[in-house]
Design a binder for these strands. Structure first.
Lengths: 209, 209
DNA sequence: TAGATTGTTAATCGATTAACAATC
DNA sequence: TAGATTGTTAATCGATTAACAATC
């Protein structure tokens, strides 16, 4: 693997797409795949794909293509999926339940090990074989179960408070679904999943036609 | 409004953030806001914000700032939110239920007017005051209720089929949550909301620390 | 008026595309 | 060998940042 200087965000965001496409190719029993075929399946140019992959090492064989199994393993390692991160969902409303049941997380190698809510009616129930704990016990449980990623699915008004607790508990990354810009230490990685952006941009485009 | 040549995707994706921040400022009773203050609230540079807005017209007052109400209305119009698009969710599993209950859609001016599933146990139930209809009746209902945007929340294997039906029924945009690259006519706008990208990129970043 | 803040042009930075040598 | 396909360098394109004139 090369010295990691300046891998673009755009490249990193394409890696999960490569990973998924390679997994599907694997399921189809394909042994070798070209950047051309990968590009065709993803509507990405083959040059782009080769450049993205080449920034992490030489994974292909000239004149041949990429070995599917090998490339999938390599891309998975680059993404750190082989770490099998322990994740927790905070806020077990409709969205939290949906996230707790999301099967793709398992496909990607994540382990759902805890759920939290503050509502006594929800605490103690079970979602996807995981018991919902009181958010008051979060810090303790995060440490106990070595949770590295917290998924925030609480209403916007509570999101910053939850983020603070997650930071204190020592998680390494936050995946935030609350439509709010949160303040976290620079050392904390946070990815905002803002659902209103996608729908609004769709509205923008269909308005102009 | 200026002639609309080449507004960048990045700009369009920031508009919903401006809209939301302006709405919150409005709720706080703020009349005038500067690009500096907007930038502070969103961690975006003021220059970027001024440039984004200026590509659509002159909404501010030099030496003063932007009138919150006026700018919010303008940004809403640019995004086409004043069209109050009728939307439908297809696939009423955990994710579909979560989306059907998502309150921010209402805040943005969208109207949820239909839900569809193929499971007889789900058809006929009610989610967020909307009855679930048989997916077999989709084309008819889409036309009847003038649905312009379809939200796909079915498993990946069924997504392309649903997309085809939506295209035939005449929707103008598709918001796709299935982790699959879909084939639609060039005239159709499609936004892919791929949840595995966010979580994987988080994994990438926390792996490297 | 003086201070503040926009809108716009120019400069920089970053990402994509094109071209092609290397090589399987 | 000939054909195919990667990896990489150079060229282009697009987006952000900096600077500042205009003006409220």
């Amino acid at each position: 693997m090369k010295a990691q200087i300046a891998i673009s965000k755009a490249t990193i965001d394409r890696l999960p797409l490569y990973f998924r496409t390679l997994r599907l190719a694997q399921d189809e029993g394909i042994d070798i795949i070209s950047s051309d075929e990968l590009g065709r399946r993803l509507s990405i140019t083959p040059e782009q794909i080769r450049k993205d992959l080449a920034s992490f090492g030489q994974f292909g064989k000239k004149g041949v293509g990429y070995y599917v199994n090998e490339l999938k393993r390599n891309v998975g390692e680059i993404l750190g999926l082989d770490n099998h991160w322990n994740i927790a969902v905070i806020g077990i409303g409709h969205l939290g339940v949906a996230l707790a049941n999301y099967q793709n997380f398992i496909t990607l190698g994540f382990s759902l090990v805890a759920l939290f809510d503050q509502d006594p009616k929800i605490i103690g129930t079970t979602v996807n074989h995981v018991k919902v704990d009181d958010i008051a016990c979060m810090e303790e449980i995060v440490k106990e179960r070595r949770i590295q990623i917290g998924i925030i699915a609480v209403p916007a008004a509570f999101a910053q408070g939850v983020a603070n607790k997650l930071v204190n508990a020592g998680v390494r990354g936050i995946w935030n679904f609350a439509p709010i810009k949160m303040k976290v230490p620079d050392s904390m990685h946070i990815v905002n999943e803002d659902l209103s952006v996608g729908l609004s941009s769709l509205s923008y485009h269909i308005t102009r036609k």
